[in-house]
Simulated scan of single mutants.
Amino acid sequence: MSALRCSVCSAPLHPDGRSLRCVRRHSFDLAKQGYVNLLRAGVDAGTADTSEMAAARADFLATGRYAPLVDVLARVVEASGEPEFVVDAGAGTGYYLAGVLDRVASAWGLALDVSAPALRRAAKAHPRIGAVVWNLWEPWPVADGVADVVLDVFAPRNTAEFHRVLRPGGLLAVATPGAGHLRELVTELGLLDIAGDKTDRIAESLGDHFEPVDVDTASHTAELDADEVRKLVLMGPNAHHLHRGGLGAKLDALTGATEVTFEFDVSVLRRKE
């Protein structure tokens, strides 16, 4: 609560029954699932995860296929010293933030995401997570200099807000798909190009506000059955494009098992003064 700010006037928020309020009487109701929506405008269709996408993501991530990425992110947070507050920008269902908090007992976490269906899950993913619906491209409803670490996992990058909410010397961890990520499915199903930005381009794009510290890569292969492949595809942006190239029909026709490559790049940067 001490980190949150009113999205109308930027005053501190305080709990008042089942709402959050500021001194200027702006009020935001807490959802029964445990998150709060501070967004004052609607969201364009196709930009937020749907209930179906959030369900597919939760089911697939529960298989542990992305656990190596959680390990990398946890090491980054541990390296920040004795962190007290971690902001996950684009947290989705809270899987990565919850995994980090399991490893870092000193920290609390804030999950920011534009998808209310995803945050219903994030709010319950860990007892030390607070979940807030927000558009990452807008100035965040978060106080200056409160975060020890900001995580950005396959999410939009608002460089100015990363810098503003981080404490002096705070760390930013940007996770992107590696060059080989899901390459077998890209070829077989014609998925959207999901290869992440090159790590040197990430450092360059953030260079006015951050200095590079390290780059860590995690990769492995796993055999997925047809249902796992469907959930993997339907949890991401390809779910908004099922008619493109007959993707939906291809998913329906899947049988058997597929060997799939998972590759993640994590760029670690430190806040410049």
Rank of each mutant, 00 (worst) to 15 (best):
E211Q: 05
G236N: 02
D225S: 00
F154D: 04
V153C: 13
A160W: 02
V165Y: 03
V186A: 12
E223D: 05
V186G: 06
L172H: 04
V215E: 11
A195T: 07
S205Y: 01
H220E: 04
E188T: 10
E223V: 11
G178M: 10
V215L: 03
E184K: 03
P177E: 13
V153T: 14
R164T: 12
D214M: 05
G170Y: 04
E204W: 05
T217C: 07
T176D: 13
T159C: 05
G196W: 09
T159H: 05
E188L: 12
A226D: 14
L189H: 07
P177T: 13
D216V: 15
D193Y: 08
R230G: 03
D193A: 10
D216I: 15
H209F: 09
L192P: 03
V186C: 05
V215G: 03
A195I: 01
R157S: 14
T221F: 02
K198F: 03
A195Q: 07
G196Q: 13
T199Y: 04
E211T: 10
E161D: 15
R230I: 02
G190C: 13
F162P: 04
H163N: 14
H181L: 08
L191K: 06
D208W: 03
L234R: 03
R201D: 15
L182M: 13
E184V: 05
V215S: 06
D197R: 12
V229N: 01
H181Y: 09
L232K: 00
G170W: 02
E228R: 02
A222R: 09
R201F: 07
R164K: 10
L232S: 00
A195D: 02
H163V: 11
D227S: 11
D200R: 12
L224N: 04
F210P: 01
V186Y: 01
L172Q: 05
V215N: 02
E161Y: 10
E188Q: 12
T217K: 05
H220S: 08
K198A: 15
G190K: 12
E184H: 04
R164V: 09
P212H: 10
E188Y: 00
L171G: 07
P177H: 12
A203K: 06
D208Y: 02
P177R: 09
G236H: 02
A179T: 14
D200S: 13
A173S: 12
L189V: 08
G178L: 08
A175R: 04
E188K: 09
I202G: 01
R183P: 07
L234K: 00
R157M: 05
F210I: 02
L224G: 03
T199S: 13
